[in-house]
Amino acid sequence: MSLRLILDLIARLALWLLLAPLLPGIINKVKAWVAGRRGPPVLQLYYDLARLWQKHAVLSTLASPGFVIGPAVAWVALAGAALLMPLGPAGSALSFRGDMLLLIYLLALARFCTAWAAMETGSAFEGMGAAREVSFAVLAEATLITALLALCVQTESTSLVTMLAPAAGAGAVLLAAGLFTVLLAENCRVPFDDPNTHLELTMIHEAMVLDHSGPPLAVILHGAALKLLLFSLFLTEAVLPLGQLSTLAATGALVGGVLAVTVGVGLVESLLARLAFRRVPLLLTTAFLLCLFALLMAWKGGAE
């Protein structure tokens, strides 16, 4: 039994690790397609990771070992959060009441470790990025908890497997919009952050990792890809009624949903400009209100 659990976990982990770097590649392809360019290959991130993993690293003279350990812990936290996510028809390997809170707090652990590693260098830019990351996360976390509450109230359960199986009910559209906004904010995509900008003053996540190189940078990039996949999966499973479909249909819907979300991110990134920083709280508050109204609709739907 326990051996099966371990094998299951290893299989899931392998799936996550292998598939995650695909998503940024797809986004970049969509952006290139919209702009009429050929763009980098879809597998570009895999090549980058392999190359970075072999490189030697340059560390700031000010940095403690925490500069390297931080990204490693952040990666473990993200991978742990990923393993808690149920995979549609395959269910979840480790599921218990309240696991969604562990997931949220593992994401917080990853955030803390990244911010810690960023502050190691004493660079003003990295401090700026870290400050923005942890500040905007306040609103993003409130939004996520509200979304979870909406799902919990809708399904009258408190574990991810049962929460994510049925559809999100009447408020599905609101919830989807709210979660998509949080996805963009938490993964530092346009309109919150521009992953391709060259101006450090306007960056969030990229500013935090300016000083990283070699294997730690590889770990950070892979962790970011994991997080993007995690949020896309969460959004898809929260909205689609995967539990009511047959295995094949559910798998198809899951893959299709994740792809749709990824393409959506790419389109948003091609068509929108980055927001001014003072407008970011407004957008996140909107996302929060969307989830809040989804929660209230879930509550009202069940009461009648």
Binding site: H56, V58, L59, T61, V68, A72, V73, V76, T121, F125
Partner: peptide, 24 residues
Amino acid sequence: AGGAGVWLWRKVRGNGLRRALTWD
């Protein structure tokens, strides 16, 4: 987390690491 931290630190040391001024 502990294992990954140690592993990555050893990997960085193994690949070779150079100390330099913060890039900034």
